Simulated assay, not measured.
Amino acid sequence: MREELRVAAYAVCVRDGRLLLARWVSRDGMRKWTLPGGGMDHGEDPCDTVVREAAEETGYDVEPTALLGIDSVRRGYPRRLGTHADFHGLRIVYEARVTGGELRHEQHGSTDMAAWHPLEEVPALERVGLVDAGLRLRRERPPNGHLRPPVSC
């Protein structure tokens, strides 16, 4: 089984009771809302990643204002030629504010749309689990940055 690690940074941007989301498009065409953000380039600082990715996916300039925490996910999935992967996603979640730019949709990327959604309507959206994790981190602000107690620190 092949091990895969992906480190990414995401922004929770709330303004006037609305959450900024980008609509992610999977390889098989499934569409779900997610937090703006994405994978870190080698040697890139996570703050720089979230600023770059938010601009790519939404058109906005954002400023990270607080580190909310880390969301860690692990899952297996089939790969080509009958092999399997053990995927571990480490997602660094920041609270951020929009400082400039204009809302626009990403072209030729992993998302196809960006929009503001009223917070009370988010539970009804087709969304990835990261949206709920990000909102929970924002709401609970756990001192250690974890939504559940870590096994060891």
Rank of each mutant, 00 (worst) to 15 (best):
V51T: 09
S152K: 08
L135E: 05
E106W: 04
L21I: 11
R138V: 05
C47A: 14
L119P: 10
V131Y: 01
R138N: 06
G17I: 03
L81H: 15
L35R: 02
R31A: 15
C153M: 07
T34D: 07
R148G: 10
M30G: 15
D86H: 14
L147H: 00
P118C: 05
D16C: 12
V93A: 01
P143W: 03
L125Y: 06
D28I: 11
I70F: 09
L5E: 12
G101Q: 04
D112H: 13
G29M: 10
G37I: 00
R74F: 10
Y94G: 00
R138P: 00
R2H: 13
A9V: 03
T49M: 09
E57N: 02
P78F: 10
R2G: 09
R148H: 11
R80F: 12
R27L: 15
L21T: 01
W24M: 10
A8L: 05
G89A: 07
V151D: 05
A22K: 01
S26L: 03
R27G: 14
A115G: 03
P143Q: 13
H108F: 15
E56A: 08
E121C: 08
L119Q: 04
H146R: 06
S152W: 11
R18K: 15
A22Q: 06
E57F: 02
R27T: 14
S110W: 05
L81C: 15
C47W: 10
P150F: 04
R136V: 02
A11N: 03
R138C: 00
M30P: 06
P123V: 08
G129S: 14
D132G: 12
W116V: 07
A124R: 14
H108Y: 12
R15K: 12
R141G: 01
V128L: 13
L90M: 10
V93Y: 00
E3V: 07
R15P: 03
C13L: 11
G145P: 05
E4N: 15
R75V: 09
R27D: 13
P64W: 06
P142Y: 05
Y77L: 02
P36R: 04
W24G: 06
H105D: 15
G76D: 06
A115Y: 00
T65Q: 09
R75H: 12
I92A: 08
W116L: 02
R91W: 02
L35A: 07
R97G: 01
P64L: 07
P46M: 13
A114N: 07
P142D: 10
G89C: 01
R79N: 12
A22N: 02
R91N: 14
R136K: 12
V98P: 02
P36D: 06
V98D: 02
P46A: 11
E120I: 06
E63Y: 12
A9P: 02
G129F: 00
L125N: 05
L130I: 02
P149I: 05
R23I: 11
G59Q: 01
V73Q: 07
V51W: 01
R104C: 08
A114L: 06
M40I: 11
E102M: 14
E44I: 04
V50M: 01
A66V: 05
E121L: 14
H108N: 12
D28V: 03
L81S: 09
L119K: 10
I70N: 00
W24L: 15
G100D: 09
R91Q: 13
E120W: 05
A22T: 11
L130H: 05
P36V: 03
R136L: 14
V73N: 02
E120C: 04
L68D: 00
R18Q: 15
W33T: 03
L135I: 12
R18C: 10
I92Y: 01
E95S: 09
N144Q: 15
